[in-house]
């Protein structure tokens, strides 16, 4: 079984993000970049399935500029077998990303697509569902546990109401939530081995996709800051202020 995993290059989740001087984007000077944490989890899951003998090949795909090769190298170092970069400097919205991934799916014909539930830059949480819709595949989003058996996946999903369990035949699109697993640290041997693994570069045109972006980010600003509050000395003062000043209890 072949698994396709999508990998997005995003700012490091612990980096401080500020608006750029023009306010049209974020400040990217010296900004540390990383694999989207949810994609790292999706990759980890795919690699574990391979290690457990349930998958034969893990293919990582990223869409973006040439610099996204770095994140694909990380994916290879973690244990992906090969990588595909769909190289474009165009600003893409989620439907466009899904169309490109759909074309990669058609080319690769995997039995499972594993991806992050959300990219932590724009926090949209859309591409997996759009991809599944475009390919007419079943979907299981926000997975916190995946069990494969007899051509199906039993997936526990993190929902607002609790853990939901669904069963879906494969092929399907599954998106990873944080609790699915803890991604491994990349070992030095992995980094060395990754250098000799194949990394192919394509363009959207090679895949026959014309992208049309209907949504664009035009302004980035800091949210209104909260006023600095007060320190209280004990619970009596706290309860009095909550009652008399804030009037919330």
């Amino acid at each position: 079984m072949k698994i396709l995993v999508s990998v997005k290059r995003v700012p490091d989740p612990y980096a401080k993000i500020t608006p750029s001087a023009t306010g049209a984007d974020i400040n990217r000077d010296g900004l540390q970049m990383a694999v989207n944490p949810f994609d790292e989890i999706a990759l980890e899951e795919a690699i574990r399935l391979k290690e457990a003998g349930k998958a034969s090949e893990v293919v990582a795909v990223s869409i973006g500029g040439a610099e996204s090769q770095e994140q694909l190298r990380t994916a290879l170092a973690m244990g992906a077998d090969r990588a595909i970069l769909v190289q474009t400097d165009a600003l893409l919205d989620a439907p466009s990303v899904a169309k490109i991934l759909a074309a990669v799916y058609q080319r690769e014909q995997p039995q499972l697509v594993l991806m992050g539930k959300q990219a932590i830059d724009m926090d949209e949480n859309q591409v997996g569902q759009m991809l599944a819709a475009q390919l007419h595949l079943p979907q299981a989003t926000f997975a916190s546990k995946i069990t494969l058996e007899n051509g199906s996946a039993i997936v526990e999903r993190e929902t607002d109401n609790g853990i939901e369990t669904i069963k879906t035949p494969l092929p399907a699109v599954i998106t990873a939530d944080l609790r699915l697993n803890e991604p491994r640290y990349v070992a030095l041997t992995g980094i060395v081995r990754a250098r000799s693994k194949p990394l192919e570069t394509l363009t959207p045109a090679d895949l026959g996709v014309q992208v049309q972006t209907r949504m664009r980010l035009v302004k980035v600003e800091a949210p209104p800051a909260r006023k600095a509050g007060k320190r209280v000395s004990d619970v009596h003062e706290l309860v009095r202020l909550l009652r008399e000043e804030a009037r919330v209890i």
């Binding site: 919205d93 989620a94 859309q126 569902q129 599944a132 819709a133 989003t141 993190e158 607002d160 949504m215």
Partner: peptide, 21 residues
């Protein structure tokens, strides 16, 4: 909610519509 993120993004995919989350 998780309901709408799951269901509406798929709807957007079916309609080839852009989506604001």
């Amino acid at each position: 909610t998780t309901f709408s993120r799951d269901v509406l993004a798929r709807t957007a995919g079916l309609l080839d519509a852009p989506m604001l989350s």
